[in-house]
Design a protein around this nucleic acid. Structure first.
Lengths: 143, 143
DNA sequence: ATATTATTGTTTGAAATTCAAAGCAATGTC
DNA sequence: GACATTGCTTTGAATTTCAAACAATAATAT
């Protein structure tokens, strides 16, 4: 591997290894005491078109059984509410509470700041290069 | 956030969420039945100058107590050996066995392939831009 | 020299996250 | 109506992790 490739590899690994702990600390500093796992569940609830247990679990790549535990504790903590829809009473639809929405906004702000730091000093044309590179990585992982 | 920023954020999150499972599957397909957690321990053992329990745990960002468990199972599986050095018999130095070295080579090959897919179609000057961007992210995380 | 303190690791008990498999209730199909 | 499928929860277990208590060795102070 060339030097540039080695460096990029090392930087990716370093970023990867630290990001979860850093994001969790950022939340703690903002007065949020949820784990990143729980944040991911809330994000999935907010981003899935029909947030049933099956759909949410699929989005997260975990089993529905695992999700049941997680959603139960989030419900106890007051971040989600569960509803049985009348048209199909097998399903459980999960909704975010105002607390959860506020928490996700804090988390999004962190991400926005992070992305801004990447773009700092980058020219517009260079943005395109970075975007193309990331697309390539994402494509590589999808196959 | 601009469109490009949003996209980059989404791509980073997607890559991040999938990479561990994908790397673990790649190893399984190559006949290696170690978790990514265990692979990271082996990598740390190989990359730390003096691989004592304390140094390895610091590199990994976990407690020495956690590492004790992990190294014990890796020793049972034949991937590391532990030695008490004569000059300071409090320490435990961890060494990789040939099996471990072989396993890490398989893992490195995956990483190399991944990096190559990023570089595909990228011109040399563009490599520099990507590198600079990643450096910025890493710097952002360090502080 | 001996006593005290610091360093290095292990053990213990507990929490979080996850899975597979079994079980239950509601819905769909024959 | 009987049987199969779907959607979810429960159960039992494995992995990974921590904090705190413990043990051994080394360094420092008296």
């Amino acid at each position: 591997m060339s030097e540039a490739k080695k460096l990029i590899n090392e930087l990716l690994v370093e970023i990867f290894n630290r990001i979860l702990a850093i994001e969790e600390e950022a939340l703690r500093n903002a007065g949020v005491s949820l784990s990143m796992t729980e944040i991911h569940v809330l994000e999935a609830v907010g981003n899935v078109p029909e947030p049933s247990m099956t759909q949410i679990a699929a989005k997260l790549g975990i089993t529905v059984g695992s999700l049941t535990t997680s959603v139960a504790t989030l419900a106890n903590k007051g971040f989600v509410v569960r509803k049985r829809p009348e048209d199909d009473r097998r399903k459980v639809l999960v909704e975010l509470t105002p607390s959860a929405v506020k928490t996700l906004e804090i988390h999004s702000a962190f991400h926005a700041k992070m992305i801004d730091s990447i773009f700092e000093d980058l020219k517009v044309e260079e943005d395109e290069v970075l975007l193309a590179s990331l697309r390539r990585v994402a494509t590589y992982f999808r196959k």
